[in-house]
């Protein structure tokens, strides 16, 4: 079998008081595109902008009016939808810790305070000139999805910023 290599390669991990960064690799990401009706039918419900729909088998993000990202098992019935697998195209970085929000604030001009960015919320913005999707998975925990080719750059930027907090 051909061996898979994640975007950040061998176990990327970084620790500081209040910050832990690691690559949370090994996920399946599928982009579904189509009319709202078709998306709703396939996904059961259409996630609202800025809010993740978290189910047991999959988490969904509404990334554009006619596009949904599904992390995990893609829905079975895909009638009327255009499917694009993206599992290799993104790195997923898990960030957690008491200073995680301060790190995000050092990287992007979005209000990441708990009141404004609570568990379940999703923000699409840019880190260091590259697009990222940030999913708040808990009070102190986040998933950051960045483009594969930028993975090392984004990782390096986060690690560097963490050291300046």
């Amino acid at each position: 079998m051909l061996e898979a290599r994640s975007p950040l390669g061998t176990a990327a991990h970084f620790d500081l008081p209040g910050i832990t960064l690691r690559e949370a690799a090994g996920f399946t990401l599928t982009q579904l595109a189509g009319e709202e009706k078709a998306l709703k039918k396939a996904c059961g419900k259409l996630p609202a902008f800025g809010k993740a729909d978290v189910q047991e088998a999959a988490t969904s993000f509404r990334i554009a009016p006619s596009q949904v990202w599904v992390v995990g098992a893609a829905p079975g019935k895909l009638a009327g939808l255009h499917v694009t697998p993206l599992s290799s195209g993104r790195t997923r970085i898990a960030l957690e810790g008491a200073r995680a929000r301060a790190l995000l604030a050092a990287c992007a001009a979005v209000d990441f305070a708990l009141e404004s960015f609570a568990p379940g919320q999703v923000a699409m913005t840019g880190f260091h000139h590259t697009p990222v999707l940030i999913h708040c998975t808990g009070e102190d925990t986040f998933h950051i999805y960045a483009m594969r080719s930028f993975a090392h750059s984004v990782w390096g930027w986060l690690v560097d910023a963490a050291q300046g907090l």
Partner: peptide, 15 residues
């Protein structure tokens, strides 16, 4: 700020 040295611009890498 921290946009110095190799952080001045992001770098893209092939797989």
């Amino acid at each position: 700020g921290r946009s110095v040295g190799h952080h001045f611009r992001p770098t893209r890498r092939s797989p």
